[in-house]
Structure formats: C-alpha cells, structure tokens
Design a protein around this nucleic acid. Sequence first.
DNA 1: TGGCATTTACGAAAACTATCGTACATTTGA
DNA 2: TCAAATGTACGATAGTTTTCGTAAATGCCA
Lengths: 129, 129
Amino acid sequence: MKQIRPTESELEILGILWEKGPSTVREVHDILSQTKDAGYTTTLKLMQIMHEKELLQRDTSSKTHVYTAAISQQTTQQQLLNKMIDTVFGGSASQLVMQALGQHKSSEEELDKIRQYLSEMEKQQKKNR
Amino acid sequence: MKQIRPTESELEILGILWEKGPSTVREVHDILSQTKDAGYTTTLKLMQIMHEKELLQRDTSSKTHVYTAAISQQTTQQQLLNKMIDTVFGGSASQLVMQALGQHKSSEEELDKIRQYLSEMEKQQKKNR
DNA sequence: TGGCATTTACGAAAACTATCGTACATTTGA
DNA sequence: TCAAATGTACGATAGTTTTCGTAAATGCCA
C-alpha cells in the first residue's frame, strides 16, 4: 500500500475537509485561523501543494476553487495508528487503547459503544472456531 | 505542561531506547538500520541533537557514550494520542479505540485486558454517583 | 609502541516545510 | 464603468530536519 505522510499542517487541513466536506480556501482558512495564526496566502499555498501531492482534489470550474480530501479519513487513521502503535507503543494495540481510554475521559455513551464492539468481536471469534 | 514535539526520526530513536533501555549510538543504529537506510554518523548526529534538545540524557564517563530517553514513554504517548484524537479522529477517543481494535488484530489475551479495564472503569463510575 | 578500528565532534549541504509579499485575474456593487 | 474586494499563482525566504564527509580523539592489540 502507498504510504502517505501528511505533515502536521496538512493533517489540520485534511481534518477540516473531512468534517466539512468540499470547501474553499477561505472556508478552510477561517476555521484554521481560529486556532492558528497564519495568513490567507499561507493556507492557500499549503492547499495548492497538497493538491500537487494529490492529497487534495479540486474543482476549478468557478473562480473560487473548491477542494476535497483525496485520501480517506479511515485509511489515514489506520496508517497513522499503525505507525504510532509500532514506534510509540511497542507494538501493543491494547496498550494504546487503554491509554486512550484512560485520559481523554470518554462519555458513558462512548464506553457503551466500545463494549458493544468488543462483544461483537467475541461473537465473531466463537463463530470462527 | 511543556509540549514536546519529537520528529518522526526522533520518535524512532526514542522507541528503541524505551524498549532497550540505555544504549550506545552503535546499538541504536544497528536496530534502526534494519528498517531504515542511513549512515552511522546520521544516527549519531540525530542523537546528539536530541541531547541538546534534552530529549535524551547521556553518560560520557567512558569513551563510548550511553544514551537514555529523557522523556517518559507514557507522557509522550498521551500527548501524541491527544493530538491525534483531535486532528484525525474528530475529537472522538472511542472512534480511535475501535479503529485500533479493528485492524491491528489483538490477541484474545489483549482483548481480555481491555474488558477488565472497562469493567474496572464502570465500577469506579458507579462509586462516584 | 604504533597502527587499525571505533567513536565523537563539527560543519555544511540537501531536502522539506511553513510563511508571506506581490502581481495578476476576476467579480461585484456603488 | 471602474474601483474595491476577493481570489489564484508564484517566487523567495526562513526555519527545520535529515544526511553525510572529514577530522580529531580514544581504545585495543599484535
């Protein structure tokens, strides 16, 4: 599989596009500048480069270009997770899971989802015996 | 809290030191070069810079210096996780957890640990009502 | 002891990332 | 219509990261 290596800034932009869907530079920049301090042309340039790298697609049919994430959130998540598990968690996924549950205090609802998910996995496993 | 931002290469080195404990440049480099293609002096330089940044400590009492990670694995894990949850998982820790459990196929033993962990959290929660 | 192997120190280049100024094009509305 | 506002293109620069060559120091052992 092709390994993608978005930078920190690129991930911020991807995150916005994943959440908001297709957006203009202006829209992305407005959100970005709430937490970050950079000029408009900086965001523009970043997104243009991301387009060259094929991290973003764009529609240039109207004057104001519209950008879309060209790599899926799921795939990106998985690749970053795998790398993180390997380098920072010594290869143990469960170690990562427990660390994640520990601090970032999840809501009761979230914990329920995880329990459901676990018992679902359990069922599958029995079936495959 | 002081935010640390190890680079990708730095994380690889930290990972080795966390696992192996105090090590020489040679030891780190030998492991690193199994998966990566870089010269010995590159690894040396990296570790020297990491020492300047206070990511590593070193013992220079013998000719061959011995390096140790100066930041804890736990703290680093937590900071990287939090950032990742925010930017890549839209703020949802459970989303990350499920994605992690999904692919990186955990052993039955690992899943058990997680279940135990969850029911432990449950108990705590009831207590606090 | 003297020379080889290993290691550190250091500088510099290469590669990549982030930032912005400026020029030019397009749209809009007074 | 035409000036202001908005957008894109593009080059330049500064900063950071990664890479490595070379020189000097140190240790080992034949």
